[in-house]
Design a protein around this nucleic acid. Structure first.
Lengths: 233, 233
DNA sequence: TCAAAAGTGTTCACAGTACACCCATGC
DNA sequence: GCATGGGTGTACTGTGAACACTTTTGA
């Protein structure tokens, strides 16, 4: 009754929700679909899982194809399995969300896909159930970043505290008190102060910091009450 | 190049990590596999996703088959997709974890599967990568229960605060101060005090409480710092 | 009356918040 | 010197942790 041979097989895809930060705003990467059905419509980046790769492998491959980069932050979001979610044929999609610093990587984006960075709250209509993916990913980003030092993945290796504060403001749509923000941040011990300053955004200039890689890895799980509970959703 | 017709199709299963609480200890439900390969070996409860159902549908069906119950707490844990995870044929498995009160439901367990409740830290060797599923589920349970009022799903409708405290102790392997525990719990406003007492566990007796269903639903997302951060993993 | 568990009260330390104030610099 | 944004100091408040104490009841 449950023998393998009598079971259906399904198509199996991955789709990536790619968040990027350009120093100003939080963005979402979408592409124009290059194949039928819905060729030319807006879509998340995705692809089918091949015989010799796991879903993680496939998602990494898709990310690399698009950005030219390995080693981006990436994690599984959710498996979407509704019977009719793909109108062509039953397809299971595993969604991954990834974080990237737009400044650093924008020149490496593969233009074959016609990728576009959209404001996170203002992206075009997407095919299938991809908008559901995005909304869930946004929720998870907010949830997780409230507890773990996740947002560093969106910044360049050198960044200032005001830059980081602006990023938090983008993610949570609230203002943070700069004094308290700075103290809380430095109290985690995850940051290393550098000698030089960023002078673009103010006359006085703000010191650059970088992440202490060792402490970052070790301290990833236990972090902060950075964001008021009421804002975390 | 990415046409649907040229893609592989894969088998697609669900597996359930079922946690139960019997008033004393936290348990895991495992079964003896009734079909090849590995017939007779220990395994999580699972099944293949059918043509006309989503993975959630399939997981609910599997849970119902085993326990006779609808409406159990259930959520998607993770999709496991390693190429060789199933030795018979490439199979993607979506793992769900479920919470049930053993006391209430034990008589309804379907005996065809030879199900056994094992202590959560002492379960038999499981087939394939099922042990990985269980460990991830334990981690997620601890993580989520530290932030959300999840553990009520493991208790009967009427329960005492000392019972709940014992459950927390099982999950986190730490002692909780009863005074602080009680205060923190009642301050959430999620509980309603009942008139009667449980007299089995003490001479004095402990008042029963029940969950305020409306507040429970509304307050599920914002809960407590119930568990010290260092214990959450 | 005593033991055992339920439940309450009290103190202390510290983390989060609000907000005032000082600092460095380019114009 | 003054406007601007970076950075520090401080006082207040609330929450969490530790632990002493009271209550209830069966044996």
């Amino acid at each position: 009754m449950r023998r393998y041979t009598q079971q259906k097989r399904f198509l199996f895809a991955v789709d990536c929700i790619i968040f990027g930060y350009d120093g100003q705003d939080l963005k979402l990467l979408v592409i124009q679909r290059s194949f039928e059905p819905f060729k030319g419509k807006w879509s998340l980046v995705g692809g089918f899982v091949q015989n010799n790769e796991s879903a993680e492998d496939a998602a990494s491959r898709v990310l690399k194809d698009l950005t030219g980069l390995d080693g981006l932050y990436m994690e599984q979001l959710h498996a979407f399995t509704d019977v009719d979610r793909d109108t062509a044929e039953r397809t299971v999609s595993i969604a991954y969300f990834a974080l990237i610093d737009i400044q650093k990587y924008k020149q490496q984006i593969n233009e074959d896909y016609h990728p576009v960075w959209c404001p996170i709250n203002q992206y075009p209509e997407l095919i299938f159930d991809h908008a559901t993916f995005v909304e869930l990913a946004k929720e998870k980003l907010r949830y997780k970043a409230a507890l773990h030092p996740l947002l560093f993945e969106l910044l360049p290796p050198k960044f200032t505290i005001p830059q980081l504060q602006n990023l938090y403001t983008c993610v949570y749509n609230i203002e943070f008190d700069k004094g308290n923000f700075t103290r809380k941040l430095l109290s985690t011990g995850l940051l290393v102060k550098l000698k030089d300053k960023d002078k673009l955004n103010s006359r006085k200039g703000a010191f650059y910091y970088k992440v202490d890689a060792k402490k970052y890895k070790a301290g990833f799980k236990l972090f902060l009450n950075f964001v008021p509970q009421s804002v975390r959703l």
